[in-house]
Simulated scan of single mutants.
Amino acid sequence: MKRFEIYRNIRKRAIIWGLPVSLFALMMIAVVGSLLVIIFSFSFGVVITALAFNCLLYIGLTRFASQPQLFQFARVFPSSVTAKRSIQVYYEQD
């Protein structure tokens, strides 16, 4: 009898075929779009092109999902954290 491992890290991030849910949805939209292209213009070249495009998209999305810091341009946290008020207006007189 086959045994299945319990996936306990569901709170971290849901993964479908090695992709987060949003990237998996993007891949499925591309697959449905390529199927529509294949259905309405059936030729062997279109079938091979759509298959190659979907394979390259999946490979690219899995690499992007494993290394998301490649496309992160802005810093997440500021360089310094302070509790000082940022208002430059002073109400008292000198």
Score class of each variant (00 low, 15 high):
Leu57Lys: 00
Asp94Thr: 12
Met1Gln: 03
Lys2Trp: 07
Ser80His: 13
Leu56Glu: 06
Asn54Ser: 03
Arg75Ile: 06
Leu51Ser: 15
Val21Asn: 08
Leu19Ala: 06
Ile29Ser: 14
Ile6Thr: 11
Ile16Trp: 04
Leu36Val: 03
Asp94Phe: 08
Ile29Lys: 13
Arg3Lys: 14
Ala30Met: 02
Ile16Thr: 15
Val47Gln: 01
Leu36Thr: 04
Val37Leu: 10
Ile48Gln: 02
Asp94Ser: 09
Arg3Tyr: 12
Met28Val: 03
Arg11Met: 07
Ala74Pro: 03
Asn9Val: 00
Leu57Gln: 02
Gln72Ile: 11
Ser66Pro: 01
Glu5Pro: 03
Val37Lys: 02
Val37His: 05
Arg3Thr: 07
Leu26Gln: 10
Asn54Ile: 00
Lys2Phe: 14
Glu92Phe: 06
Gln69Ser: 14
Glu5Lys: 08
Thr49Pro: 01
Val46His: 00
Pro68Ile: 09
Phe4Val: 12
Gln67Ser: 14
Arg85Ser: 13
Gly60Thr: 08
Thr49Asp: 09
Gln67Glu: 15
Ile87Tyr: 12
Glu5Phe: 05
Leu61Met: 05
Leu19Pro: 06
Ile39Lys: 10
Ser41Ile: 10
Asn9Ile: 00
Phe64Leu: 15
Ile29Met: 15
Val89Ile: 09
Gly18Pro: 06
Met1Phe: 07
Pro68Trp: 00
Ala74Arg: 10
Ala65His: 11
Val31Tyr: 02
Thr49Met: 07
Ser79Ala: 13
Tyr7Val: 14
Gly33Ala: 08
Met27His: 11
Arg63Met: 04
Val47Glu: 01
Tyr58Pro: 01
Gln67Phe: 12
Arg8Asp: 07
Met27Pro: 02
Ala25Lys: 06
Ser22Leu: 04
Leu36Arg: 02
Ala65Met: 01
Leu51Pro: 03
Val32Gly: 05
Thr49Gln: 04
Val89Glu: 14
Tyr90Ser: 09
Gln72Pro: 03
Cys55Met: 08
Gly60Pro: 01
Arg13Trp: 02
Arg85Gln: 08
Arg8Tyr: 09
Ile10Asn: 11
Gly45Lys: 01
Val47Tyr: 01
Ala52Asn: 05
Leu23Lys: 05
Gly60Met: 04
Thr49Ala: 15
Tyr7Arg: 08
Gly33Ile: 01
Ser43Tyr: 02
Leu70Gly: 05
Phe44Tyr: 11
Val76Met: 03
Glu5His: 09
Gln88Cys: 10
Tyr90Trp: 11
Gln93Asn: 13
Val32Trp: 00
Ile87Asn: 13
Ala83Trp: 04
Ala14Val: 14
Leu56Arg: 08
Val46Cys: 03
Tyr91Cys: 13
Ser22Trp: 01
Gly33Thr: 05
Val76Asp: 06
Gly60Ala: 12
Met27Tyr: 13
Val47Phe: 00
Lys12Asp: 11
Phe40Thr: 15
Ser41Arg: 06
Lys2Thr: 09
Ile10Tyr: 13
Lys12Phe: 04
Glu92Thr: 14
Val21Leu: 11
Thr82Arg: 04
